[in-house]
Structure formats: C-alpha cells, structure tokens
Amino acid sequence: MEERTESEKGMRMARETDDIAAHEAAEHASAHVHHGHSHAPSSHHAGGHHLLQVEDLTVSFSMYDVASGSFFGAKKVESRVIDALSISVHVGEIVAVVGASGSGKTLLADAILGLYEPNASVSGRIWFDGVLQDAESLAALRGNGISLVPQSVNHLDPLMKVGRQVRGFSGDAKDREIEQNRLFARYGLDESVDDLYPFELSGGMARRVLLACALIENPKLIVADEPTPGLDLDLAVAALDDFRTFADRGGGVLLITHDIELALRVADRVAVFKDGTVVEETAVANFASPDTLVHPFSKQLWHALPEHGFEVIA
C-alpha cells in the first residue's frame, strides 16, 4: 500500500536511516551470524550494506565429452565448477578464501571482475557497494573501484615498459609517479625497473609489480589471487601488511591464498572453499580451535596446520 502523505513517507525514510545507522554501529561478535555468515569484531556495514556481496553464484562451462564417442561425435556437457557460492566483504576487512588447488577460487575472482569465457554460463547475484551488478558493469569497475592482483604474471603486457603499466593512463601523472616510486621502494624494486619490459623481470619482481599496479589505483576493493608465491617471507609479510593498512583505511580485500598461516595473520574472516563453494565463512578468531569451527573440512584444515602437527583426520 502506498504512503498516504509526504509526512508518512518522510517518517518511513527516517526510520530506515535510523535502522541503517544502528546496524552499522552494532558490534559484531564472532558468533553473531546473519547474511549467512558469522562476523569478526571489526565487521560493519557502511551505508547499511556490504562492500561486496556474492549470492548463489554458479559458473558452468559447456564442454565436449570425448568419452561419450568419437572426437567429432562427442556430445556437449555442462561442467559446473562453482556451485551456489555466497561470500561477502565488509568495509574495513580482509576476507581470506582458503582451499585446495583446482577448487575454483580463481574463477571466483574472475566472476567478480566480470571476466567470463565465451563458453561459460553464469548465474547468481553480485552487489558492489550496495549496487546490483551485471557482467558489463563489473567489467567497467576493473581499475575503477575494484583492483585485481592476478595469480599469473602473464597479466603484464609484454610490449609495454613496467613503469608505464604501473602508472597507467589516468589521473595526475606527477602524483602517480610519486606513488609508483613509493611502492617500488616499499617492495624493493629499483628505479631502473621503470624502464624494463616484463620479460626482463624475475618472477618475484613481476609479482611485486602486479602488487604496485593494484595499489596505485586507489580502489575500494582489492581482489588478490595468490599474491605472495615467489616472494620471500619479508616481502610477503610486507604485501599483506599493505592490504591490512588498505582495509583499515576503509577499503576491503578478498584474499585468495593457499597460505593459511599468512592469511590468519592479517585477515578478519576466513571463507573455507571446497568443491566449488564456500562451506564455512567465519571469523579468524574461530580458527583458534577446531571446536569453534563448524564444517568438517574447516576442522581438517586446522589440524593440517604446521603448529598442529600436520595431523590428518577422517
């Protein structure tokens, strides 16, 4: 039923504003569950919504099943890689996605960036900063709100010098040069790297350049897909500390990683990924004991950590 007067409409809007303010100000204990996940103490909903919210994401690929007949007579089948996945990132937090190789974690990153293969079928809903997105709008957000730290160093343009790739082509050139120099110093990259092509970089140097490319864009959300392989421990810690600082200043980070120990060091919450979906999304504090974890696979990951003796449980 429509409001009868402008006064009633104004009162309703005022109530909604108060509800949003109360929700945002509420302290979220690690055991507090809503929106399908538990919260870390730092979790809050700026503007009354998540920075990133993915609901029921399913990604399938149309492929030929060569086992069904000859090469030319093979039938097409749908191979589902991500199944009804839901995950969220609040303003000011790092959410670490952990799980086995080949479980679809990188595909999650691609979906958030609107990177879909021609034979992919995608369903579900993705909100960014409270706005429902589609593939076109997600693609427009790449480098304009959402930055990706890709898993592969092949994302660097082989025909463009490193400095030009890091600085990009938008914003104030002088400001971006200053920021590039700061990032290079932070990650132990000499100024001479500016004039090199990607093929002249070591694997570790290329990965540090990718970090600089993401951080220079001043995004709201960073999707970091395995950002630390190839880095020594000190540089890996520095990179994650930069993500922590970025989140503490009001951004959000979705950190996809195999390194659970490093993830637990900086993250606020952990999303446990198995068989193409998130089986548990919980506060880092709950990884202090298997008794505070819910899913059997989460408990297995806890027991497999070095400090717990790499114990394998059924």
Results as ranks from 00 to 15, higher is better:
210 L>Q: 03
210 L>H: 02
213 C>E: 06
215 L>V: 09
216 I>G: 02
217 E>K: 15
218 N>D: 15
219 P>R: 01
219 P>D: 05
221 L>G: 13
223 V>P: 04
224 A>S: 12
224 A>Q: 08
225 D>I: 11
226 E>I: 05
227 P>N: 07
227 P>V: 05
228 T>Y: 00
230 G>Y: 01
232 D>V: 07
232 D>C: 09
233 L>T: 15
236 A>I: 05
237 V>N: 13
241 D>C: 06
242 D>W: 00
243 F>G: 15
244 R>T: 12
244 R>Y: 04
245 T>N: 13
245 T>R: 15
245 T>H: 11
246 F>L: 05
247 A>Y: 13
248 D>L: 15
249 R>M: 15
250 G>R: 09
251 G>T: 07
252 G>M: 12
254 L>V: 03
259 D>T: 00
259 D>F: 00
261 E>L: 12
262 L>C: 02
262 L>Q: 09
264 L>T: 05
265 R>S: 15
266 V>W: 02
267 A>I: 02
268 D>E: 06
268 D>F: 09
269 R>V: 09
272 V>P: 01
273 F>C: 08
275 D>S: 10
275 D>Q: 10
276 G>E: 04
276 G>F: 08
276 G>N: 07
277 T>Y: 00
278 V>R: 05
280 E>C: 08
281 E>P: 09
285 A>N: 08
286 N>G: 03
289 S>T: 14
290 P>D: 05
290 P>E: 06
291 D>K: 07
293 L>S: 03
295 H>C: 03
296 P>F: 10
299 K>H: 09
299 K>D: 04
300 Q>Y: 01
303 H>V: 14
304 A>W: 00
305 L>D: 04
306 P>D: 13
307 E>I: 13
311 E>K: 14
